[in-house]
Nucleic acid binder design. Sequence first.
RNA 1: GCCCUCAUCGUCUAGGGGACCAGGACGUAGCCCUUUCAAGGCUAAGACCGGGGUUCGAAUCCCCGUGAGGGCACCA
Length: 496
Amino acid sequence: MTVRVRFAPSPTGYLHIGGARTALFNWMFARGHGGQFILRIEDTDQKRTVKGAVQAIMDALRWMGLDWDEGPDVGGPYGPYIQSQRAPLYRQWADWLLEHGYAYKCFCTAEELKARRAAAKAARGDQSYDRRCRLLTAAEVAAREANGIPYVVRFKAPTEGVTVIPDVIRGDIRVPNSQIADAVLLKSDGLPTYHLANVVDDHFMDISHILRADEWISSAPLHLNLYAAFGWPHPVYAHLPLVLNPSGKGKLSKRAQAFDDHGREVLVKVEEFRDAGYLAPALNNFLANVGWSFGDDREIFPIEEAIPRFELQDINPAPTRLPYDKLDWLTGQWIQEMDVLELARAVRATLERQGHEVSPEALLAVMPALRVRLKKLTDAEGFLRFLWEDGGSAAPATDRLASAKLPAEAARRGLQAARTFIAAAQPLDTATLSAGLTAIGESVTTNGKAGPFLGALRLAVTGQEVSPPVFESIVALGRDRALARLDAALAALPAE
RNA sequence: GCCCUCAUCGUCUAGGGGACCAGGACGUAGCCCUUUCAAGGCUAAGACCGGGGUUCGAAUCCCCGUGAGGGCACCA
């Protein structure tokens, strides 16, 4: 059997991290089995459709590196891939069900249904549709139609027996048919609901496996009975574990801001992860570790290596929270493995977006040292502030330059010597600076170690308590600017 | 109210009857290294939800509880 899977988001907003995980698993499964990965847009709810959402979702998927073989933009033999463009097809099959007695017209208004549902809920009773229109005689139906009363098409669900959902991850799930509602298949606006559309499309698009979130389990019996009514074989089901809110309370939703245990906001849109400076390969790596594991106690891996090992049976059925801390660590690991030039380019673009212009030379000078310090691309800003903020280092307070191991007088002497040394250093590189400045430091501190002095030097030159290593920082800054910073610091110290 | 799913360290996970006084990772703590911050190395604390079975033997199988989550829309 050829594997054909689809990711079918509804364009109601941006790509949600939970949706991204579903897309990733579908994609991995397709790629690992020589199959096709299809992108289908489920926009049958006109009211909820958001302009630009399709583009945003595709951008996010592309950024993640998840390419699709068929979809709205690339086309394919089973198109169109946007449901609103397939309306006649759903109508045709809704009619077919009507003709064959598997569906009926329902004239109840939305208001009536809402009221009945509310009443049922208040009475703690069954909230699903009471099936009253199912009992209408042909004459009654004809009369209503003649009066132009709008209707929806509902499925005539079986009321007795049991439907079994064969699920690759969970085994057979048995649901009493009494639980299956007479769901709306075709809405009064003529468009299908999810239930009809996904069954018709999955069938005609030759979808072999459905990998979707856990929350769909409850509608699976309905879908299975639809397949049965049509006389079509159904795809293989695999219900993926739900991604929970980091607080553990409820599922992670794209409609509400999510918070962690400490009440802090948490990222949910894929584009937010991108803008926060996370790396796509790291994000994929991260997502693949949730609900599935590589094996061999390995946590860090390129997704390409995971693909051949990825099997649906190995997916952990338990719902999970996203371990955000691990994403920071993982991204840091990925950054450490990146090529310096490539990293420098990425950091430069990020800094630019943050409004900072930094020369490639300066960036390259600090990059090897900076690399191990970054958890994500955006972290560079904090470390490199001294490159564009001259004011930051102007006249640092004397008490911050001096310390127990480096009295003010020694600090002045050391910085003076450093100034002389830097002015003449040839070439101006980390090796030269390290040798010269360390020696100066050792001669000037009370404990004979360069440390305390180098700390003061860092502060004088960068104005920061935390920065890339001083030598690299000086090289990045350039001789002239470094000397100017030292002069400013010296001026702030008592002349003796 | 009804139906469904799930249940291993704080979190993500390995484990699919004996190899488990339960392994890895993040996080946390301590130590080492160290020019700050990181990174790295070493060490430590830390879990099989409860109760019944089945079995010579159960984290692993079954049942019942409990807890958490999902669903019961002219939303997907």
